[in-house]
Computed example of a mutant assay.
Amino acid sequence: MIPSDAYDVWLLDLDGTLVDAEPAYRREVFDRVGDRLGREFSTYEREVLWHGLGGSRDAQLRAWGLDPGAFWDAFHAVEDPVVRAEATYLHEDAAFVADLDRPVGLVTHCAEFLAGPVLDHLDIRDWFDVVVCCDENTGYKPDPRPLHLALDDLDARDHAGVYVGDGASDIDAAANAGLDSVHVERHDPGKRGQCVLGDYRITSFDDLRAPAGGD
């Protein structure tokens, strides 16, 4: 168990960590992306790319013979922010975040035009003191810069901090930023094809609810 007061500042990932999109929505998005690229995506490929199960999505796209730039252009072109928000649900155990009584930041690869409507639709924007949506200016995880930007906005660069995420890039970003990490495993580890080694590994935020000094 990890006491919630073990750190002065908490940073968290969004998709796959706190929220996720309904399978039917993910399937529709990839069908439309496939139409634009002239290629079908299997169930396995959809899951790997959506959740980043294989690590770097761009590296995985290249391994499958796809140009990452063309893929992401098509991906963002077919997504409607309102439809995406309405198809997104909050993991029940994520309510833990609302109870944190210290600075909390969100650092996500979800594009800003999609993340904003999701936060508003789920009414969780006020959970976070700062929101950083990764882009070409901020850099992308595992680059530590997005995490450093969040810490700077929180005036907490020198404080004991932790980053919580569901992917290898999250854990690597935490290490690169000098933070501890919590890996939330919401998928069958066998699908990843790799072992994600954070400082802590949990399957639910309920594992973080133990009081300091508790059993």
Rank of each mutant, 00 (worst) to 15 (best):
E28T: 15
L12G: 05
Y7H: 09
F96Q: 00
P146R: 03
V104S: 04
D73P: 05
G55V: 03
S181E: 10
E79F: 04
F96S: 00
D199M: 01
G198C: 02
M1E: 09
G213C: 05
F75C: 02
V162W: 06
Y200M: 00
H183D: 07
T17V: 01
V118I: 15
R145M: 15
M1G: 14
G193N: 13
W64H: 12
A74D: 10
R209V: 03
P81T: 10
D207W: 01
R201L: 01
C133W: 09
F128W: 01
W10L: 11
P23A: 07
A95T: 14
R157K: 07
N137M: 12
D5E: 04
T43P: 08
V131S: 02
E185R: 12
P146M: 08
R125P: 06
F41L: 06
F205S: 02
A74S: 13
K191F: 09
L197K: 14
G167H: 07
H148A: 06
S204E: 01
G193W: 14
V78H: 12
R57V: 12
G116E: 10
G116W: 03
A77C: 12
D120I: 13
V82I: 12
D135I: 09
A115I: 05
P142S: 07
D143G: 04
V184F: 02
V29D: 00
